[in-house]
């Protein structure tokens, strides 16, 4: 007997993500899902973003490391509430992991929640968590072929941060190709070229984020 199904395999995760989203909306929490390869600069960008915005917004962080707590410790050092998710070896965070970590926060007291995903360009793009925006980082040493090789994450993201531009003199990174290929996959993609080391370009990223949060928090009539 044939049974017609036609169902997204990750529909159950999508449902949990939508429930998370409803909870975030109720509490006015703007949520970012931050993704990249290992070492592209996620935690560093989180630190810089906190330093730029902590007087303006109440910020909290979820760290999705596979095991250690190095990244969570770096955030805690900035006096920001942080929860380390135990992904149990999983290569991504999913809607349920976020849901289970939420009781550790008072959502009513948070304006911006940044979720640092596991370093990986494949699975994090597939699993929604209830975010307002997916933000991905491509760092110069990784090479400009990544958009063409891993199109899904570029398609799903609202923002691509090209990080480590201070290393341009030392690595062969074809900036024009990276941007062209990423836009051929997602023409709405916002692109920022930054160095978390020197601080170059970070203002534009901060301005984009501030505009999104303020727009999100604006009372609707």
């Amino acid at each position: 007997m044939k049974v017609t199904v036609v169902k997204n395999v990750l529909a159950a995760n999508d449902r949990i993500a939508a429930e998370n989203r409803a909870l975030f909306d109720k509490n006015g929490v703007y949520v970012i899902n931050l993704m990249s390869s290992p070492g592209a600069g996620k935690t560093t960008l989180v630190e810089k973003t906190i330093l730029a915005l902590q007087n303006r917004y109440r910020i909290a962080v979820i760290e999705g490391d596979i095991q250690d707590t190095y990244d969570a410790d770096r955030i805690a050092a900035l006096n920001i509430p942080v929860v380390q998710i135990n992904t149990g070896g999983a290569c991504h965070i999913d809607g349920n992991m976020i849901r289970e970590s939420l009781p550790a926060f008072d959502l009513a007291l948070i304006d911006l929640l940044i979720c640092e995903n596991v370093g990986n360009l494949v699975c994090p793009a597939e699993f929604k968590i209830g975010e307002n925006a997916k933000v991905m980082i491509l760092s110069a040493p990784e090479g400009a072929d990544k958009p063409a090789k891993y199109p899904l994450i570029f398609q799903e993201s609202s923002v691509m941060v090209i990080n480590k531009i201070d290393l341009f003199p030392y690595v062969d990174f074809d900036l024009a190709k990276a941007k062209r290929d990423a836009l051929s996959i997602n023409k709405e993609l916002q692109i920022f070229e930054v160095s978390c080391k020197t601080g170059a370009g970070l203002d534009d990223w901060i301005k984009w984020l501030t505009d999104r949060i303020d727009d999100f928090k604006k009372p609707r009539v």
């Binding site: 007997m1 044939k2 049974v3 017609t4 199904v5 036609v6 169902k7 997204n8 395999v9 990750l10 597939e126 199109p151 899904l152 398609q155 062209r180 051929s184 996959i185 023409k187």
Partner: peptide, 21 residues
């Protein structure tokens, strides 16, 4: 040409149908 747009190929995993007893 370098002016291209990706229009298919990233579709997520779906179950289409099953044959069952």
């Amino acid at each position: 040409g370098e002016e291209v747009m990706l229009v298919g190929g990233t579709e997520e995993l779906q179950i289409i149908e099953m044959d069952v007893d």
